[in-house]
Amino acid sequence: MGTTWSVRFGNPQMIGLDAVRASAAHALDRVIAQMSHWRADSDLSRYNQAAAGSVHALAPEFTAVLRCAVQWAEASDGALDPTVGPLVALWGFGPDAVASAHAPDLRALHLARAAGGWRQLRFNAAAATLEQPGGLTLDFSGIAKGFAVDHVVDSLKALGLVDLLVEVGGELRGVGHRPGGTPWTVQVAAPDDSVGASPPIALTDLAIATSGDRWHQRESAGRRWSHTIDPRTGEPVAHGLASVSVLHAECMHADALATVLTVLGPTKGLPFANAHGVAALFFERTPQGLQASASRGWHERVHA
C-alpha cells in the first residue's frame, strides 16, 4: 500500500510477538492480493483487465469493501465512486498516472468520465459476483486502507488479543483498553500550526480516518490541485476544506466517509454528516485563517 503499519497491544496471554506480527502481515497480504491497484495480479487488477461479459466470483473481503463503497456512493450521489481510477490517473495520481506538464483537456476528461461511473457496476452482493461490462475499472484507494485496519483487528482478535490499537497509514482503530485500563487515545492534528490539535479522543472500540490535501498535490502552469477528485465533475476538489476526520465503529466506513466529506466540502459535507449521523471534524481554509467545525455526531462521540 506504500505506507507503514503498527500494532500496540496488551498481552496478558503472552502470545508470541512473531505470531502477532505474522497474523497482521498475513491479513494485510490478503487485502493487497485482492484489492491493490498497483499489482497486476491482484483480484481488482484482473477484473479491470477482464473481457466484457465476464463474471467474477468475489472473495468475502472484496465483497464487503465493494458493498460499503456502493452504499456510500448511493447515499452521497456519487461523491465516493469506486470506478474513479481513470480520472485520478488523468490528473497525475495513482499507478496509471498520466505524465503531463499540463492539466488534462476537456476531451480527455469527458472520455474518462464516460468510461466510469458506479452505476455501471453489475454487482450481485447476495451472490458475491461482479460482471465486467467492458472497460470498467475499480479503484479502492478511498476505502481499502480502512478495511485493512479492520481486517488486521479481526485477525488479532481471532489470535486471542482483546486490547489493541491498529494503525495503517494513519488510520486507526482501538479495541479494549491500554494496559492499566485507560483508553487508547489519539489527537487530530490541524493541517497547519495556526490551530492546535484536538482534545484527546478515546478510541474505545472506535476507529478514526482522516482525508486531506496536505501530502498529495500536483502543480502545473500556476494551478495546484489535490489528489482528491470529484467523480461527479471529473475535476479535483476546489473548495477550502483542508482535512476531515471521521469516527466510526469500523475503519472501512470511517475511511469511505472521510473521502465522501472531502469531496462534498465544508458547505455540503457538514449537513451530510449531520443527516447521516456521521461523527466528523472539518478544518477549512478561509480568508480569516484555518477554521474548525464539527458535526453533532462528533460532539456526541468526543464529549460523551
Rank of each mutant, 00 (worst) to 15 (best):
L28S: 09
S45N: 04
S6M: 02
P200L: 09
G53P: 02
R21F: 08
L241P: 07
M252H: 00
E167K: 09
R46F: 01
T4F: 07
L136A: 10
A40K: 07
L241F: 12
G196S: 06
A294T: 14
L172D: 09
H248S: 15
A112I: 04
G212C: 11
V162N: 15
R173L: 11
L159I: 10
C68T: 13
T137G: 11
L66M: 06
F147T: 09
H299V: 06
T63E: 14
T83S: 05
G92V: 05
A189G: 07
T262P: 08
T259Y: 01
G289P: 14
A69I: 00
L203Q: 04
S245L: 09
P104A: 12
L281K: 10
A52Q: 10
R232A: 10
D105H: 05
A79V: 12
G289W: 07
N124I: 03
A22T: 13
S6A: 13
L111A: 15
H151D: 13
I143F: 05
T267N: 06
L138G: 00
W5D: 09
E74Y: 00
E235R: 12
G176P: 04
A64T: 13
P60K: 06
L161Q: 00
A207H: 12
L161H: 08
D139S: 11
P200A: 15
E171N: 12
A79T: 04
D139Q: 09
A57K: 07
H110N: 02
P86H: 11
V168Y: 02
T210A: 11
D41T: 09
S198W: 07
F283D: 14
V260M: 13
W184Y: 11
V166K: 15
L159F: 04
Q291Y: 02
A19K: 05
E171S: 13
C68E: 12
P82F: 03
P200Q: 05
A258D: 02
L270F: 00
A50D: 08
Q49S: 11
E74R: 03
V302Y: 01
Y47Q: 07
Y47W: 07
A51N: 03
S226G: 04
A207F: 06
T129P: 15
V7G: 07
W184K: 04
V98P: 02
D255C: 09
L247S: 08
L111G: 01
A148I: 11
G269E: 08
A197C: 15
L203T: 00
A73Q: 05
H227K: 00
M14P: 01
P231T: 05
L159M: 01
V168H: 00
L58Y: 07
H253W: 12
P287N: 05
A103V: 10
L80S: 06
A242C: 14
Q49C: 06
F283T: 01
A79I: 08
D193N: 07
A221E: 13
V149N: 03
L44F: 10
D150C: 06
W72R: 02
G170F: 09
T129E: 11
L203M: 10
A24K: 08
F147Y: 15
G180Q: 01
P183I: 14
D139M: 09
A57G: 05
G180H: 06
I201K: 01
H26M: 05
A207S: 15
A19E: 07
D193C: 08
W215S: 13
A127N: 08
D96Y: 04
R232K: 08
A128V: 12
